[in-house]
Design a binder for these strands. Structure first.
Lengths: 347, 347
DNA sequence: ATGAAAGCGCTAACAT
DNA sequence: ATGTTAGCGCTTTCAT
């Protein structure tokens, strides 16, 4: 393992120290360590000199001082990933995928959690402030994000947002084409004879309007079926809250015969709540989730879900890299990712 | 909302611009913005001047340049949280809790994912390199971490590790006192008449030795019961893998009558695998998990689990702050957090 | 193929 | 109460 071997205590050595030990100038050290590969200046250092410098670095345990380098270069080669939470499998995927693509281009990723607009503003301010060169924003739960992103885009901050509500405006947007899949799921439930549906939303109805709920409601209307607010509960984001909300719905005088959840994790809790209440799934309560996470295929019964076949995050890093390469990138792109309805045992 | 209002395009303004607009020196600007509250120098600025400076900042949309400030101050007021994955509820908790405590002291947190020693070394190198002032390390799946942390501790990098295997050595360690609770769970299973146990480990037996499995094995031995390798499967970390592993165990000629999983999420998948195979839980297969996550209380049947009553992360930030305040902090502390066995319906 | 030197934007000792 | 100034460690232009 090439791991932290030659670290010595004491004040951190600088390039001056390396230069002294190697018997060369700091310029030379900088050129050796700058790693501008493919650069014409790469060949200005002879192999012997390069070796001496690298040996000196090794000997005294030198590491470049990032703030100094960043100050001088006026960039950090770092990208921020702003998310409104960490805990879903989706976020895990997103982070590792983007990171691996950034690493290929010599960059790195750091993650910050933003649950409020103020915090989002603060974090984007940090990239403006030199903490990072750009940001990927995945904050569906944050209301008012459009204005913030608009403002930073005006400042030419490189940003890509993953959102179904944000409109590209100096930044790019990846959105999921959820509606067709959700409508298909609704149609399937109606075709199976359901006409009393419940909906498990992410947030309280009074908060952020739940776009998935709106799609469901509109589609039900097409079938002449109503989705009254009394049949809507919040908490899809939280496994415990989803359980409690479903129990509430099942306790209604005329409980729903089918439940549509804005998330798969919420739907799974709903299945448990139904089973715990002595109902059968799908016979007494059909359940459909959103997201099509892996877990859908191991639950009992397996969870029907509307979601991407397999999440594809590749456009995200690609678009951000475009913007990083060209800070005054003019075009604002909008990429739509397809969703599909995957009927399984729970509906 | 106090959000990104006065951002203007063009080259980012510096303190010199603020000073010019406000009609004061850069020193004054620095003192106004430095925010050394409680500092004797805080009172050197008159209220009128302070106002003029803040107005100028607002007017031209100035934001401090972090790399420059960090270079000069030789600190970043930033802490790194290194985790081997993001997706569990535990990680979500950890991150938000530590962050809120850091914010109270004017610091911020960024998260990086480290699944290998090399990456851990790289990320800790980044704090040495000036990306952050210290790190919290939560990488149970990373073998060889001890040597890396030892090395950086020698460099006086402020670190706190959450681990049951790392020994404090220039850094602090938080560990969970898992053994008593796990032993109690084993005793309960044995008392219930189980003598054929399966174990769902985090990793393959050939990889990292699973400390929880060792405890289980030793405790079973006390009861004169063997835990053969044939009854051990890996994949507790991954819901799909855990499902497949459990199915394998149940397919054995003499399947286990009880299953101990190294994680709650693994145990939940195991319950599903059992149900999917037509077994009843706990009658045909008793299941116990580790971690006592919230989800245990909503599964059907509710999951018995060994874990903390409620996770308490407060010592982590506290210890790190001590080290940040005093870089040559001598003591290496080891905090033990208690675990309890919570019997529920699944066993 | 290598070196000297001018800053990047900021902070803080040291004036006044 | 406010200003002058010398760097922090690095990159990069321009010489040689």
């Amino acid at each position: 393992m090439p791991v932290a071997t030659s670290i010595k205590p004491g004040p951190r050595p600088t390039m001056v120290d390396v230069a002294r030990v190697a018997g060369v100038s700091v310029t030379t050290v900088s050129y050796v360590l700058g790693g501008r590969s493919g650069d014409p200046t790469a060949s200005r250092i002879s192999d012997g000199t390069r070796r001496r410098v690298l040996d000196a670095v090794e000997e005294i345990g030198y590491r470049v001082n990032e703030p100094a380098r960043n100050l001088r270069r006026n960039r950090t080669d770092r990208v921020l990933l702003l998310m409104d939470r960490l805990s879903s499998p989706y976020e895990q995927h997103l982070a590792t995928d983007i990171e691996s693509r950034l690493i290929e281009t010599g960059r790195s990723l750091s993650v910050m959690v933003c649950t409020t607009v103020e915090r989002l503003d603060h974090c984007l301010g940090m990239v403006r402030t030199g903490l990072a060169d750009g940001a990927v924003v995945q904050c569906r739960a944050v209301a008012g994000a459009q204005a913030v992103l608009d403002a930073y885009a005006r400042e030419h901050i490189a940003m890509v947002a993953i959102s179904n509500v944000l409109r590209p405006n100096g930044f790019d947007v990846i959105s999921n084409d959820e509606a067709p899949a959700i409508e298909e799921a609704v149609d399937a439930l109606v075709a199976a004879g359901h006409h009393r549906l419940g909906f498990l939303a992410h947030d309280a109805v009074t908060d952020l309007p739940d776009s998935r709920m709106e799609v469901v409601r509109r589609r039900l209307a097409v079938h002449g079926i109503d989705l009254p607010d009394a049949m809507v509960r919040s908490g899809a984001r939280d496994r415990l809250a989803a359980f409690a909300s479903t129990r509430e719905l099942l306790g209604l005088p005329r409980p729903p015969t089918a439940l549509f959840a804005a998330s798969d994790t919420g739907a799974i809790s709903a299945i448990w709540a139904a089973l715990a209440a002595g109902r059968r799934v799908p016979e007494d309560l059909a359940v459909v989730g959103c997201g099509n996470i892996d877990e859908c295929r191991v639950t009992v019964p397996q969870l029907s879900s509307a979601g991407p076949d397999r999440p594809d995050f590749s456009p995200i890093a690609a678009m951000l890299l475009d913007r990083l390469a060209n800070p005054s990138f003019a075009e604002s792109r909008h990429v739509h990712l397809p969703w599909t309805f995957f009927p399984r045992q729970s509906s």
